Amino acid sequence: MKLDITWADDCQGKKDYDGDIVAVSTRYWPSNHQKNGMCSAICDISMYDGFLDRNGESELLISKNFEGATFAQVAEQVEPWAQAQMDRIAAALRAEFNQDA
């Protein structure tokens, strides 16, 4: 995957070269959208080429489906799972970049 970000003008002659690399994206569906009558969500964690807000290149790292009777039941599953994945990603990045420190 090639980094696809560009320099952007900031103020007073400064420039930024910024982009997004990893993101969490979760879609929740209420019970009336499901045949089984359960509320559900899918949580994806993906790596991006620098821009989340356009159709650039991305790679799905992990995805998980969740179900519950209410939004609260789904959310209480999604949130700790997403945090655990963030912890894994952060640990992997720290290990890579701190290995020579």
Rank of each mutant, 00 (worst) to 15 (best):
K2P: 06
K2D: 12
L3Y: 15
L3G: 07
I5C: 11
T6M: 14
W7N: 06
A8V: 09
D9P: 08
D9I: 03
D10A: 13
D10E: 15
D10M: 13
D10C: 12
Q12K: 11
G13V: 14
K14Y: 10
D18W: 10
G19D: 04
G19C: 06
D20C: 08
V22G: 03
A23G: 15
V24A: 06
V24Y: 03
S25W: 07
Y28C: 06
Y28A: 05
P30D: 11
P30H: 09
P30M: 01
S31N: 05
S31R: 00
N32A: 08
Q34R: 07
Q34E: 07
K35H: 03
N36H: 02
N36Y: 01
N36R: 01
C39R: 01
S40A: 15
S40K: 13
A41S: 14
D44P: 00
D44V: 08
I45S: 01
I45A: 04
S46F: 02
S46E: 07
M47G: 01
D49A: 04
F51E: 11
D53S: 14
D53C: 11
D53P: 02
R54Y: 05
N55W: 10
G56I: 04
G56L: 01
E57Q: 09
E57R: 03
E57S: 07
S58K: 10
E59S: 13
E59V: 15
L60G: 04
I62F: 10
S63C: 07
S63H: 08
K64Q: 15
K64Y: 10
K64H: 15
N65Y: 11
F66N: 02
A69C: 09
A69M: 08
T70F: 14
A72Y: 12
Q73F: 12
V74H: 00
V74L: 00
A75Q: 02
E76W: 07
E76S: 14
Q77L: 15
Q77H: 14
Q77P: 11
Q77D: 14
Q77N: 15
V78W: 02
V78T: 08
A82T: 12
A82I: 06
Q83Y: 11
D87H: 02
R88V: 06
R88W: 04
I89G: 00
I89V: 14
I89M: 04
A90K: 10
A91Q: 06
A91V: 00
L93S: 05
R94E: 02
R94P: 00
R94Y: 03
A95N: 13
F97T: 03
N98M: 15
N98F: 14
N98Y: 11
N98E: 15
D100Y: 15
A101I: 12
